[in-house]
Amino acid sequence: MIHNIPYLAVVALVAIGFWAMIFRKNLIKVIIGIAIIESGVNFFLVALGYRSGAYAPIYTHAPSGQMVLPVPQALTLTSIVIGVAVLALMLSLAVQIYKKQGTLDTRKGVLKK
């Protein structure tokens, strides 16, 4: 249990992100919440690949021996770039909403019912 602290930190990050997305009324805060969940999931993937006492999966400098798992790192790389792409798109939309409606309040949208 105590050794699973990184996993529990991931759950805490997901919870904080959801908290921001549910209870914060500012669109930029909602987007920051998504970024936090994204970071949490990335952390989760890398933590899954960790093997204690092993080396980075690169032969150039590592002494031959056990290595940490390479696949989760590759997945995380993909996921980081996806994260920044999504973030840029959402922020530009938020800017346009501010331009159209003069507010970033989620409660004052025009699409209702």
Binding site: Y59, T60, H61, A62, P63, S64
Partner: peptide, 9 residues
Amino acid sequence: IPPEGSNPG
């Protein structure tokens, strides 16, 4: 092909 094992590459 790089040699097997740890090497500068």
